[in-house]
Amino acid sequence: MSESVQNPTPPKKKRGRGCITCLLIPLVTVLCLAGAIFLGPKLAGWLGIFGMEAQEAYEAAPDLAASESLTETFAELGIPGVRVYVIPIKGEPTQGAFIILDASAGYKGMDPLNSNNNAFLMIMKDITARNRNENIRLAHVTVDYRDEEGNTATAFTADQDLVERFSDGLITQQEFFAQIEIDVMHTLRYLGIDGMLEEIR
């Protein structure tokens, strides 16, 4: 028996599996994240987990009679540059009122004649009265403040129930404002201080 010395076969070079895995993991993670961000809300919307998109919720034509009536609230008080859109909410028996206070269309404040009356309260009272008398069925009032270029500077929204409690004198103006919602993200973007927020974080 002769011992023959075999030339050891050179070890196979390991294929760069590690590298492929390294590439795959982030790729799959990115795809999952993208899916979750872009498709997740839509999927959840279809399943009824998340709410409808605004385009769907307000897809119907504005209620012309109600829009005209609420626009009159401002016209009768001599406030120019205001348009009101009352839009039915899909799947609900109620409607949303969008009040556009537009400086680019001549809006100069709720009390342009400086009458020192509480114009805001008068407006809320009038909206409440019209809502009740004309059966407008408002669910919310959303106010859009536009600047002289017509860009939205800030916006807030309040449930109609809150508007009515304020109009009926059940809560003060301070309590009313404490319960409204302000579009913080948009206001911050308008001010261009996203970057500054990053610094706070």
């Binding site: 009390d111 403040y145 600047d147 301070q174």
Partner: peptide, 27 residues
């Protein structure tokens, strides 16, 4: 953050400024 929206609404005068200031503070 709290005051600029009010200042930037240059078209708004008197009562609106007070009102917005109150709204932002309460909020």
């Amino acid at each position: 953050i709290l005051s600029l929206p009010i200042l930037l609404l240059s078209a708004c005068e008197g009562s609106d400024l007070d009102l917005l200031e109150m709204a932002f503070e309460a909020w």
